[in-house]
């Protein structure tokens, strides 16, 4: 791994734009910097641009415009030198037609890892990822979760400075998911830098040092997990649900009634209110429901989570801003 001090920028993106068809931009002016030893999370919906960003950073595609530096190198000129120092676990399956053990060994061979070292690493990884019992099974005969474990384990057959993980925990059970996340954290403590895309906000909360919320090819929010949550610190979240047929008349009235005292986002027959003081908000909701003859199906008050940050960022992107106070 790189001997650079922790925090030294290993990835720098400035105003990255990429279009596959010249019309729609999958990346639309993205800028960020990732330091050595950092776990950087990319959160976003399907089609938000996360995978395109990963492809650009792993040199699979050349961005249409903007500046990108990986390990201080330009992907346009130094693609191979970059790829020699990165590892990539892609979102889609990728295997050779051989056994689990064979896949690990062959992958290590492709990376130029000496035979004795390949054998040592393969044994360690088979044990770490609970694959010892499947070592002679063909990878294509494994379950989805087992395949994913092989795919992740395989990447640790070689040394790297940056590891790109594109939704690596899809299909893993809870125990293996935690094993993987802890294993990544151990590597990070040794100096590995990780770029991690996920839909799972608990994972992002557990693993990532900083998170970028991406939507429509743009970064909507970028900060440490703690700071993102702090954006809404001191506030409480009120969740409520009404009958589906009542939503269209109740929610507009709720937005009007709450005025600037709450930030409200609605989806189908549910609403989320971000408030400083939940008591008057609860009273207002109940009073309005009685006045309109709408039955509240459930109503809860809770602390803010990363999911709230994510949904609010996405909601701003969809509507140009949430209802009520920003």
């Amino acid at each position: 791994m790189s001997s650079l001090p922790t925090g030294t920028p290993l990835i720098e993106a400035q105003d990255l734009r990429h279009s596959y068809d010249g019309k729609v931009f999958a990346l639309d002016g993205i800028s960020f910097s990732i330091g050595r030893g950092e776990v950087f999370g990319l959160l976003g919906r399907n089609g938000a641009g996360k995978s395109t960003l990963i492809k650009a950073m792993t040199t699979l595609i050349q961005p249409t415009s903007g500046r990108l530096r990986i390990l201080g190198l330009d992907p346009r000129r130094d693609g191979r030198r970059i790829r020699e120092r990165i590892g990539v676990v892609q979102q889609s399956e990728s295997f050779d037609f051989t056994t689990v053990e064979g896949n690990l060994d062959l992958y290590g061979y492709l990376w130029g890892v000496p035979k004795a070292e390949r054998a040592r690493r393969a044994e360690e990884l088979l044990r770490r990822y609970g694959l010892e019992g499947f070592r002679r099974r063909r990878s294509f005969d494994l379950s989805g979760g087992q395949k994913r474990r092989v795919q992740v384990a395989r990447e640790f057959m070689h040394d790297m400075d940056i590891l790109f993980l594109d939704e690596p925990t899809v299909g893993l059970d809870i125990v293996m998911r935690r094993t993987l996340l802890d294993s990544i954290r151990t590597e990070v403590d040794r100096g590995l830098t990780v770029v991690f895309t996920t839909h799972n906000l608990e994972e992002a909360d557990y693993l990532c040092d900083r998170i970028a919320v991406v939507d429509a090819g743009r970064v909507l929010a970028l900060d440490t997990v703690a700071n993102l949550k702090r954006l809404y610190s001191g506030k409480r979240t009120v969740d409520l649900s009404v009958a589906p047929e009542d939503g269209p008349r109740f929610f507009p009235a709720l937005v009007e009634a709450m005025g600037s005292t709450a930030t409200i986002t609605t989806r189908n027959n549910t609403a989320v209110l971000l408030v400083d003081d939940p008591k008057p908000a609860l009273a207002g909701v109940v009073e309005l429901s009685q006045r309109l003859g709408v039955q509240i199906e459930w109503l809860t008050v809770r602390q803010n989570t990363l999911e709230d940050v994510f949904l609010r960022s996405i909601d701003r992107s969809d509507t140009g801003g949430p209802h009520g106070r920003p």
């Binding site: 792993t58 040199t59 699979l60 693609g79 191979r80 790829r83 020699e84 990165i86 990539v88 892609q90 889609s92 399956e93 990728s94 295997f95 050779d96 037609f97 492709l110 990376w111 130029g112 790109f164």
Partner: peptide, 14 residues
């Protein structure tokens, strides 16, 4: 079809 092309091309090969 089985993803190894993309995987090899994010490895040390042109």
């Amino acid at each position: 079809r089985w993803g190894m092309l993309a995987q090899l091309l994010v490895g040390p090969f042109t």
